[in-house]
Amino acid sequence: MSRYIVKRILQSLLTVVIVVIAVFLLLRLMPTSGYFTRDDYINMTEEMRSAYLRNLGITDPAVIQLQRFFAGVFRGDLGRSITVYPKLPISTILAEKVPYSLWFGLASMFISVTLGFGLGILMARFKDRWPDHLGTAYVVAVRAIPSLIYLFLIQIWVTGIMRWPMVFYEDRPVTWILPVVSLSLTGIAWYGIWLRRFMVDEENRDYIKFARSKGLSQKYIMRHHVLRNAVVPLVQYLPVQLLLTIAGSLIIESIYSIPGMGGLLVYAIKQQDNNLVQVLVLIYAVLGVAGVFVGDLLMAFVDPRIRLAEKKKKKEALRV
C-alpha cells in the first residue's frame, strides 16, 4: 500500500508539473495586445507599449519566466496579478476570495450529500412508486432545465415573497440561504440519482436474493448490504468535490454577488493575467489530483475488498 501511495504521489506531481508547464507555454502564445484595453492601446505609442510589457516581464524568454514562476512558488511568493487586479499580490486575492467559496461550498455540499443520499435511498426503497416518480421528476427538471432559468426565478420570486434582499450581504444571514439552496439543487439531484441507481443494481444481485431467502429483513438488507455497497463508487468523488469547493460557482456567485472564486479563472484567462492563471491552474491541478488520489484511498478504506495495487502484486508473487 505504501509503495502504491508513493508511486501515486510521484505520478500526481508529474501530472501537476506537466499541466502547469503546458498552460504556461500556451499563455505565451497569446498576442500581447491582450494586455491592453482599446483606450490604452490608442493612447500608447509602440515604444510605450513595449516599455509597459517589459515592466510586466512579458518580453523575457518563456523559460526565464517559467523559472521565475517556480522559484517564486517555492519561496511562497505567488507573484502579483497583472491585469485583473493590477499589482495586487495573488496571495491577497486568494485570502479575500477563498473563504466565501469555501464556506458556501461546504454548506451546500453538506446539504447535497445529506439530502441527496436521503433522496436516493427513498427512491430506491420505493422504486416505481410515487416517491420514486417524484424524485425522478425533480432530477429530470434540475438536469433538463437550463440552470440559469430556475436560479433566476428562485432569486426573483423567493426574495420578492420573503422580502429578502436580492443579493448577498455578509452581515445579513437571511441572504445566505438562497445561494446555499441554489448551490445544492444539482448536488442533491446528482447524489440522489446515482445512489438510487447503485442501490437498485445491488438489490438485483444474487447475494441480496440469497439474503432475502435467508429471511433477513428488507430494512436490514438495505442498510447493511445494499447501501454499504452502493455508496462505495460515490465515496470516490467526495474528496475531489470537497477540495474543489474553493473554485466557487460562476453562476451562483454572479447572481447573488458573492465575492468568491467563481469565474476568477475564466476572467483571468480572458484578461490574459498570466500570473493569476498560472497560480489558479496550479492550485486547481494540485487539488484535483489530490482529490482523485484521496478518493481512491477512501474507496479502499470503505470497501475492504479493494486492495489497489498490492493485491495484484501478491497475486503475481503467488504465481511465481
Binding site: 491592453f36 483606450d39 490604452d40 493612447n43 500608447m44 510605450m48 509597459y52
Partner: peptide, 11 residues
C-alpha cells in the same frame, strides 16, 4: 515615470 505605466499620459 514610464515604469508606473500611466497609460493616459499620452493625452
Amino acid at each position: 515615470e514610464p515604469k508606473n505605466g500611466i497609460k493616459n499620459v499620452g493625452i
